[in-house]
């Protein structure tokens, strides 16, 4: 029962995984990955540990706003200006660090946010506030 049940459901899981991989090209906006800036942006997202405060498509931390849809919410110029202006230093307000990014790196991050924003997420989040 244990081995049988486990193996059966694991095989079903693998089957669904295979199918998911077949369907994904239609949903995951992978065309955007042809642009090296997007790939570089993802790496910047990771190596600055943005996920330690923010969520991306609802996963991550809950200390700071969702960024999966930030490109739609704020637009490229606001995003870059915001990152450069940190920390606000406003007393008592949650603070975001200064990451000392170059203009090129800022553009790469924006390209990454645009890419993520165009993934088909089954209409999540419920509204623009994320």
């Amino acid at each position: 029962m244990f081995y049988g049940g486990t193996i059966f459901f694991f095989l079903v899981f693998l089957g669904l995984t295979y199918n998911t991989e077949q369907v994904l090209p239609k949903r995951d906006n992978r065309a955007a990955l042809a642009d090296p800036a997007v790939v570089a942006g993802k790496k910047l997202w990771e190596t600055n540990q943005c996920i330690g405060c923010h969520s991306l498509l609802g996963e991550g931390a809950y200390f700071a706003p969702e960024l999966g849809n930030v490109y739609k919410r704020r637009g490229p110029e606001f995003i870059k200006a915001w990152i450069q202006a940190q920390p606000t230093g406003a007393p008592g307000r949650r603070q975001m660090p200064q990451f000392n990014l170059t203009d090129k790196q800022l553009d790469e991050l924006v390209a990454f946010f645009k890419y993520v924003g165009e993934i088909d997420t089954a209409k999540w989040p419920p509204n623009i506030e994320g």
Binding site: F10, F13, T20, L24, N29, L57, G58, E59, I119, W124
Partner: peptide, 14 residues
């Protein structure tokens, strides 16, 4: 195992 699907609602998966 199939319960993993509760994380595949809104991340671009079918």
């Amino acid at each position: 195992i199939l319960g993993t699907g509760h994380h595949y609602y809104w991340i671009g998966t079918p």
